[in-house]
Every structure is written in structure tokens, then in C-alpha cells.
Computed example of a mutant assay.
Amino acid sequence: MVVYPEVQALDVTGPVEVFDTVNRFLPDPAAGYRIEYVSAAAPLVRTSAGLMIQAAPLETGEGRMDNLLVPGGWGLGQALADHDLLCWIQRAAKRAQRVTSVCGGSFLLAEAGLLDGRRATTHWAYCQDMARRYPAVTVDPEPIYVWDGPYVTSAGVTAGIDMALALVEADHGAEFALEIARYLVLFFKRDGGQPQFSGMLDAQLADRVPIRTAQEWVRAHVEHPLPVPELAERVHMSPRNFSRVFRREVGMTPGQYVVQTRVGRARELLESTDLSISQIARRCGFGRVETFLRTFDRAVGLTPGAYRQRFQVLAPAGLLIEPPVAAGSQG
């Protein structure tokens, strides 16, 4: 892992904790990961959060490597202007089996010319900037991570954990990677195609109390019919004024918000339950299964069945691996 001043601490520690946890559970230590930090600012590199990382000089990282990981951070601007760092990344990429980045680290890979002609992602807030700066790179703002040949780029900050788990899955299998995710108390192990943030985050609660009240009502009663006149009456507004103010405050019409909320709830149920498609359709307020299928496919780009197959994670019956216990301790 290459680090630099003001690197994002979680971009570094998130993936590293995944790899370190793997090392503690593997029966054969030789099959694990040996983690090395290199930096032009060695021996001590200060992260944006004030944590200090002990790193070796760049020139010590000249041997063969399985994974090169480049994180992002608030010091990215200065890192992009560091010619020696960019040249080292170019050379190191030729020796690495996989070249990966977290968040803004993809800018460093692109600046080094490594992503030209490839598909990549970065933090959703910077995808447009990346696309403008590097027109030869196909920037995809949606996925949590993108795997294109030997290059794996991940979205913002915590997405680096998902990417690290994908690398573990490639090295040690899906079942083992899922158990690592469970031990790290992750809510679920996200597939790379999972959107960077949910539709519910995309439409935050409005500032005006009546509109926010209507939004909260929709979320709490998604299984019921939610016609606009009824929502307007509930917050003591005329339907026309309600629709106008709602669109201005939320950025979409009340009808669009209802559909987005229904689809968001359906995604949650598909990911976390074994309910049938028809049961989910009813619980999310779709009067007909056909309507649910058509609406979900149009909004997500997958049928509900395909979405479940890719993203459902149910807790298995028991742990496949036992947590490490210090010698002499009583379990």
C-alpha cells in the first residue's frame, strides 16, 4: 500500500483490517497477506485524521507484489503533483498481479495513465471531475467497485472494505469471505454492482415540515395506496400546491418519490428475506406483481429475481471459523 501525507485513514485501515483478519483465521499463515506500506514521505506519514503510519521508502517496494493498493485522501492534490510518486506507481503496476484503489486513489492511477481505455469508479461526489479530467477513462458513478482486468477501483471510503472482501473472495472463496465479513460485523457483504448509495439517501427529508411529514408517512405506510390528494390532505395542503412544493423541496414529484420508496423497500426485502416475489410486491404497495416486476426492472436495471440472486445475504446457521483465542484464556 502506498501512502502519502493527509491520506484518508479509513481508506487505509478498512482494507488492511480485512486482510489482517484473514491472516488470523487462515490455518496456513503462508497463504495470508504480508502488508507493507511505502511512501515518499517515509518513515512516518500522517493521515488526515492524525493517525501516524510507519512506512518504508518507495524504493524499497521494488519487488514482486500480488496487490498494489492506492488510497485516496485530503492530500490527493499534492500527491497528484508528486512526479516521483506517480512514476513509482507506474513501475509498481507492472510488477503487481492486481492494481487497486480506494476512493480518490483512482485519480492517481488515472494520472499515471494506468486506466486509459478502462472502466473505473471513485467516490460518487468526484465522478464527474474524474470523467472531465481523464476522458480516456470510462468513469462509472454507480458501482461500489469496478473490476476491469487486473485493475480494481472502489468508490468512497468504506467501499474499500467491500473491495478488499472481493479480493479475499477471489483468493480464498466466497464462503470464507462472507465469514470474514460477519466477524467484522458488517451488515452485509456488498457485491460490486451494488449502487454506491441507496435511493433513500438520494432523496433526503425536506426542510419544510409539511413535506417532511408527508415523506415520513410514505416511508411508514409504503404497503398502502398513497395517492397524491391523500398525502396533500394529510398535511393540509391543496394537491396542486403540495405537488409544486414537494418537487421544489425534494427534487422529484410525489409520485416519483412513492415509487422510489417502494423500490427501496423491495430491495431491502430481497436482500435480507426469503419472502416470495408476490409477497414483496404486496408489502411494498404494488397492486399487481407484473407492475412490481416492470417498475423494479426499470428503476434498478435488474429483475427482482436477478437482484436477489446477486445481492441476497442471509446469515448462515453457524460460524465456519472460530474467533482467535489468546493462549491461556478461558473461552
Rank of each mutant, 00 (worst) to 15 (best):
Y4L: 03
P5C: 01
D11S: 02
P15T: 00
V16W: 10
V22S: 02
F25E: 05
D28K: 11
D28A: 14
P29S: 01
Y37W: 14
V38P: 11
V38R: 14
A40W: 04
A41C: 10
S48Y: 00
M52Y: 12
A56L: 12
L58V: 02
R64A: 15
D66N: 14
L69S: 02
P71A: 02
W74N: 13
L76N: 09
A81M: 08
L85S: 03
L85V: 07
W88P: 03
I89M: 00
A93T: 12
A93F: 05
K94I: 11
T100C: 15
T100R: 02
G104C: 09
L108N: 07
A112E: 00
A112Y: 07
R119F: 06
T122W: 07
M130Q: 07
Y134L: 05
A136K: 13
V139A: 13
E142P: 00
E142M: 13
I144F: 07
Y145I: 12
W147T: 14
G156D: 08
V157W: 04
G160K: 00
I161A: 06
I161G: 04
D162A: 10
L165P: 10
A166N: 11
L167M: 09
I180K: 06
R182A: 09
V185C: 07
V185N: 00
D191M: 00
G199V: 09
A206H: 06
A206I: 10
D207P: 00
R208V: 00
V209R: 13
A214L: 13
R219Y: 01
H221C: 09
H221W: 07
H224W: 15
H224C: 13
P227W: 09
P229I: 05
E230R: 09
E233R: 15
R244I: 10
V245P: 05
G255S: 01
Q256I: 02
V289M: 06
F292T: 08
F296T: 04
D297E: 15
G305K: 11
G305M: 11
Y307Q: 06
Q309V: 12
Q312A: 15
P316L: 11
L319H: 10
V325A: 10
